[in-house]
Nucleic acid binder design. Structure first.
Lengths: 242, 242
DNA sequence: GCAAAAGTGTTAGCCCTACACCCATGG
DNA sequence: CCATGGGTGTAGGGCTAACACTTTTGC
């Protein structure tokens, strides 16, 4: 990615078209998204986003943007919606940004490319939170995993995008059996169940859940995991190679 | 829409972003799409497509493009996928077009805007084929309903777009109960069944299909339809207002 | 009355749900 | 041997698939 807004141009990128990513991770029973806090005065958070090079597939651009932030390759990702309201632009954000960052005054015209109306393609990604090494880019002050139920102030329609991403994730979850992207290599049945309960926000019965999963024939049972607790040791599972 | 390619510019439209529409209709047991034959020498067919005005919602743009071709408002439509391969551009089409249309030589540079790489947002629409009055635009020689199994030569990735649209339609059909968009105001149970059989390309049992539909509680039974045939007259149905 | 097509009923099998029970483990 | 939590079995209810039967219509 270029070093600042100032370098952006249609020579490099497709104008007025962006990609917004919702990066889902799962940890300690919570569904989380990876969001950067922007490197300005004020409580401005965004979604990992970027633009598309002239000679780059849109899917590749999304993959690149995700790699930049997570440092892992071959991420599972899914295009889920295009956000194309006419009023989608960064003007409002820029004006409140400038209000709180007077030192930026004067360079305003250099952001022209950036404050035009944008159409954004939404992708969601599923990652093993332990494998990710969150990276800031030039525009970020920091980047953090936050509980999807405790989102900070996202600029633009960030929250709407995340909501829609979650709906798309749920719709695809069963059909595409993508849960493994959110889990470590091996896991117990209870951990898998907790993941489902978190994502669908409803309880499952332990035994029926186990039967459902085993009947899918996608899990391989490994050795038991002795936790030291005074109870039966659970089996570890991994997803079968396809 | 502007009068020709020559008028296209980023002042009016968002550059390098287009909309492609797959307009589904249903008639005589066949699922059809409305496709224009381009107004040039050669067997070039396209999808109803267009661009997005700077101050226009993407969804509105799709609606406008559909209205232009069908002359009906409030069309059911659904955004289903973004086609963003880097090699998606009209260059190949333009070169074979120019080969078969030598009179266009020389005006080539005026098509610069048009032959750049394009990202296209796919929408599919469901319409009552009897209500549509197909309209050509400046770029069309003619526009026709064609059986989805007998598509002509579509430029670019037209066929891939239609295939994906059909998959999306099937996926949404049950959940969203959108079948009525493809049928006239009133219809018989058999007609509804035929529609389902056409779209899903599989047979249903008459009685079970009827039970399934009636249990959905979305149909209102009207008077019988006396066809003159020597058999029991079927009821007419309409979809309940929601 | 008969053929054709529509409407309705009915049973068997399947899947999911809910409950029950058994087993391993460490203290 | 007991408390805890994991693994497995099973009966009941609802849904669906498949078949059978009845009704209506025009000739």
């Amino acid at each position: 990615m270029s070093e600042s807004y100032k370098g952006l141009s249609t020579q490099d990128y497709i104008a007025q078209l962006s990609i917004d990513c919702v990066i889902f991770g799962y940890q300690n029973g919570l569904l989380k998204v990876l969001v950067p806090k922007l490197n300005f005065q004020g409580d401005f958070w965004g979604l990992p986003s970027g633009f598309i090079y002239q000679h780059e597939d849109v899917d590749q651009a999304a993959q690149r943007i995700l790699e930049d932030r997570t440092q892992i390759k071959d991420i599972y990702l899914e295009q889920f919606h295009v956000f194309g309201n006419a009023h989608r632009n960064n003007a409002e954000f820029m004006s409140s940004l400038l209000a709180q960052n007077p030192q930026l005054q004067g360079s305003q015209e250099e952001y022209d490319w950036f404050v035009r109306r944008f159409v954004s393609i939404g992708y969601y990604a599923l990652v093993d939170i332990k494998k990710v090494k969150p990276q800031t880019t030039y525009i970020d002050e920091k980047i953090e995993w936050v509980d999807i139920n405790q989102l900070p102030n996202l600029i633009l329609d960030g929250k709407a995008i995340i909501s829609k991403a979650l709906l798309a994730l749920r719709a695809n979850f069963d059909d595409h059996l993508v849960g493994y992207n959110l889990l470590p290599e091996t896991f117990t049945m209870k951990e898998l169940q907790n993941l489902y309960e978190t994502i669908f926000d409803k309880p499952y019965r332990r035994n029926n859940f186990q039967k459902m999963m085993l009947d899918l024939n996608i899990l391989k049972r490994l050795e038991k995991q002795f936790t030291g607790a005074a109870n039966k040791a659970p089996y570890l599972y991994k997803f079968k190679e396809m």
